[in-house]
Design a protein around this nucleic acid. Structure first.
Lengths: 213, 213, 213, 213
DNA sequence: GATGAATGAGTATTCATTCAT
DNA sequence: TATGAATGAATACTCATTCAT
């Protein structure tokens, strides 16, 4: 049994190696700039093996995304549903969002590249994101007034922009910024910004709700 | 003379045709997914002509970007420097930003793809964006408190995220959104959202400044 | 087992086919006039295979040269080091040189094109030829006097010119020559010429050495 | 009249500029490595002008060669026919050959590339070289015995190899040679080698003639 | 499972050449 | 004469994918 375990532990999981390699490369360079050869080399396997395990480059990349989407969605849900008072929950939600992206900057880059890609990939993306978007709309629904321009969807887009773009535009601003935007201190600073945003905007929304009623 | 003019007007300007074709295609599919052949076909010219006028695909794409950056920057400056009371000027600024992107959705898509691209292109982008970023930092500097997380750079990233991502993530959300996010009505609604954001956040900042003094 | 052998013998060695095709074409037309497509077609393989095996056209051509240089150098060494009296050894040396070129006229043509090619290729050539040149200088060193214009290097250039140019200029002179300079008879005649040269020049050198001492 | 002269002197002779540019480039890089664009740029004229004056790149290159062949042939003839005793004339002939090539190293390089080029160019070359070869055969005919391997054609090939290859192989040997083979001193040294060769071989031939009679 | 070999369709770019002006 | 614009064909090389072993 011990022997078997050792064997199992030593056993190379090439399928997983490939997935990891793909994930890293796509995150760094974007979809179109990564070739099957690149992935195979990085994973240390034969090129043909990609196709054996994942059928096509496209499907391999789909798998990379799926994994990300799922863990992203779950991170948000766990954070929000942990209980507590409403405002507290939203702070936890934005923290979860921000932390997930901070830990997976490659995911942010990948998404950014994806949303401007051609139709086939977009269609898939729509389907994959839809449950998370529905859930967030529902969650935010309780505290926004009827005004169309204050509907949950707008806050969703605004906050996801604030979070994601920090990580994708940040590196560009590095020199102008005066410090590495991905350093722990800078990340904390940004987190502070986001919490101030949440507070200020929740205050504003509360005022609106009062005025409407 | 009139005849001559007509002839002149009818004169084919292939260089411009190529630039336009490139602009449209890149905006739709992103840089890497556009080939020289695609551009030539769309422009209705011989592939080799593209190299005759622009030397390389890369340089052609640079030209596309330059044009955009410049008109973007100018639109913002004109809007802000027109005078008026501070809050009014910021509303005009956000309007200018939003309108420019709304009229040039392809530019938004292009930028989104760019920020996650490989190093050579990124380096160029940094240089090109730097003056605008500097200017915005200066402009916002007057109304933010000393707190690091409320520094101009954070509001720049936040607002650019709110504006740009509406147009790049919007299409993905179309079905979930329930309406075309690029329709005039939806665009007006989003504009309303942004103005509410500006007002609410300026209120918040004023409160902070008072508290600090 | 015999069957197996047959199978093995029948096995296609495309890498070798490509090398052979390249060698033949370059020898006929010179480096620059041979395209990757030409080589692939002659070898009866897909163009991409050429890059699969040899990375680049340049490297493929390098391999062709390497093979030639090596066997050329070895042929000379074997001939000279076989022993015997000095004059006998030089006759064997010139025979080996001449025979090698006669059997590999394409190599002569190839070299002739190479020496007038651009810098990258020249640099490589220098490195590849240097051991053979050093060795020949050493070998000739024993029988030339101190006079600079009778230094080994001059005899090396002179004899290599006599040998190589017969095969490269020969075909041009064919019609004027009155017979095919590559026919066995013509080749024997040329060999006679070279041996007469060797004898006459060795006589001359001996006289010089005596005069100097 | 003076005015007219000035105008004439100032008048640009583009056709000649093109020919000169072509000559220099071909001599440096060989035929196939020179493009019409290269020539036009070096000559400082529009690419289309090459075709206006010379019809095609091939014909332009032909003209370059013609000029060379003609002046080469003439240099040899003048040197030999100047009179004097036989041996003296041959020394003058080899001097003329050597000097011409030394002054036109590019011609040597060009020829070396040509003799290994494909058929069209070779055919032309044959026709162009034929009168000179005939003449040399005739000139040498007086002092060679009947022996086939001592026929004029062999000495022609041998000496042209000795002369030309010094200039084409020389640069390759530069580092091994220990000095620049194209420096005036090295060139004089080589000239010495050639004259020693002429003397030694003429001595040898005389001995043969005596033996035969 | 895993691999080396093989390929057809594609890439950006350069070429000699033509032509209207 | 001279040129800018235009093109069809070629260049070396890369791609995702297949397949026999």
């Amino acid at each position: 049994m011990a022997a078997k375990r050792k064997v199992k532990a030593a056993k190379k999981n090439r399928a997983a190696d490939i997935l990891t390699a793909a994930e890293e490369l796509i995150g760094e360079r974007g979809f179109d700039a990564v070739s099957a050869r690149d992935v195979a080399e990085k994973a240390g396997v034969n090129k043909a093996l990609l196709f054996y395990y994942y059928e096509s480059k496209e499907k391999l990349f789909d798998r990379v995304l799926e994994r990300y989407h799922q863990s992203h969605y779950e991170a948000l849900k766990v954070a929000f549903e942990e209980g507590g008072e409403s405002r507290e929950r939203f702070h936890r939600l934005i923290d979860a969002y921000f932390d997930f992206i901070a830990k997976n900057v490659r995911y942010a880059r990948l998404m950014q590249g994806l949303v401007v890609s051609h139709s086939d990939r977009l269609e898939k993306l729509k389907k994959q994101l839809s449950p998370m978007f529905r859930w967030i709309e529902e969650v935010l629904g309780t505290l926004t007034p009827k005004t169309a321009s204050l509907a949950p969807r707008h806050f969703y887009v605004s906050f996801s922009g604030m979070v994601i773009n920090y990580f994708t535009y940040g590196p560009i601003l590095e020199e102008l910024w005066g410090a590495d935007p991905l350093s722990p201190e800078a990340i904390d600073e940004r987190r502070g910004h986001l919490h101030w945003m949440v507070d200020t905007l929740l205050d504003g929304l509360e005022k609106e709700l009062k005025a409407q009623s």
